[in-house]
Simulated scan of single mutants.
Amino acid sequence: MEIIDLHCDVLYTLSQAEEPISFKNNEKLEVTLEQLKKTNTKLQVFAIFIDDTLNENQRYLEAIRQVEIFHQEIITPYEEMVHITDWKQLEQLQSNQIGAVLSLEGCDAIGSDLRKLQTFIDAGILLCGLTWNHENAVAYGAEEDPTKGIKPFGREVIALLNAHHIIIDVSHLNEQGFWDTLQEATYVIASHSNARTIQDHPRNLYDQQLRAIAEKGGHVHCVFYPPFISNEASVTIDDLVKHIKHLAKIITPSRVGLGSDFEGIDLYVENLTRTEEIPNLLQALEGIFTTEEIKGIAAENFQHFISKIERS
């Protein structure tokens, strides 16, 4: 069974390492080439994430450095890894190849300069979040006042992303920003969020939001971070399955996917601590969903979603 994971923070880990870390098989990494191969991963999305303690110029330069790390440490050394810059490339991958996509986790790196955003578009990002958890020049994050919407510059950002057929990721937006984005964005997805009905956390989505994403034609990819799953001290795969069942109930199984957030989390679901353990989650879905539905959640739903994106 193929797997598509819409979110990991390996680039940030590699950028912060004091000594070189091999993406191939370093046991310190939660996502490695060998694990991707072992789990038959077809596509891994690599987020560009920067520390919001940096000043505006430093943020841009750090984000550019992570693009360089993506090529130097993920793509160039390994013939199996293929940089996907157009979704149609995914259909052309050989059986021994793994697609790698760049995403921008929040627009902090661009400040209020559309030219900087264009730089990342030119670098090949195919998904873009408008914020992380905090306010920037574009919008307000999940930890901000939920009544504040997209800023005027944010509407320019959305227009540019739409013009390049880039998926806009709503996972980190506050509530009003979410609704504003749904009105203006062409392609919308939540790359790593869960159901707020199950776990009342600002990073999760209310049922009304889930339905609105589905009506927009979008998908929701569940995240593996325990605080987004349960308040229990020990969180199990069964706890995460509750979210997947609820998402499927609200938006149908055909609009659900995976967004692990590996390398971006410091707490873990039992037996779901790295890429090689994702099959444990898929196995737990057996008997709840059909084999075809599980294949969809694992990868095929997202492939169907991108098949509808207009070619650039």
Rank of each mutant, 00 (worst) to 15 (best):
7 H>L: 09
9 D>T: 07
10 V>S: 11
13 T>Q: 13
17 A>E: 01
18 E>D: 12
27 E>I: 13
28 K>N: 12
32 T>A: 14
34 E>L: 11
38 K>F: 13
39 T>D: 09
40 N>Y: 02
45 V>P: 06
49 F>D: 01
53 T>Q: 10
53 T>K: 15
54 L>M: 08
58 Q>N: 11
71 H>N: 14
73 E>L: 14
76 T>H: 15
95 S>K: 13
102 L>S: 06
103 S>M: 04
105 E>D: 05
111 G>R: 00
114 L>E: 05
117 L>D: 11
120 F>N: 04
121 I>W: 10
121 I>Y: 12
127 L>S: 11
127 L>Q: 14
133 N>V: 09
139 A>T: 02
140 Y>S: 03
141 G>C: 11
144 E>H: 03
152 P>A: 05
153 F>R: 10
162 N>K: 04
163 A>R: 11
166 I>H: 03
166 I>K: 01
167 I>C: 06
171 S>I: 09
172 H>G: 09
176 Q>K: 15
177 G>I: 00
178 F>I: 02
181 T>H: 02
181 T>F: 00
190 A>V: 05
191 S>C: 09
198 I>Y: 00
199 Q>P: 02
203 R>D: 12
203 R>T: 07
204 N>G: 08
206 Y>Q: 10
207 D>P: 05
208 Q>C: 03
211 R>D: 03
212 A>Y: 06
212 A>F: 00
216 K>S: 07
217 G>C: 04
218 G>N: 01
219 H>I: 14
220 V>P: 00
221 H>W: 04
223 V>L: 07
233 A>E: 15
233 A>C: 05
235 V>P: 03
241 V>I: 09
241 V>R: 08
241 V>W: 03
244 I>Y: 09
245 K>Y: 12
246 H>G: 12
246 H>F: 13
247 L>P: 11
253 P>T: 02
255 R>Q: 10
259 G>K: 04
260 S>R: 01
266 D>M: 02
266 D>K: 09
284 A>R: 15
291 T>S: 14
301 N>S: 06
309 I>D: 00
309 I>S: 01
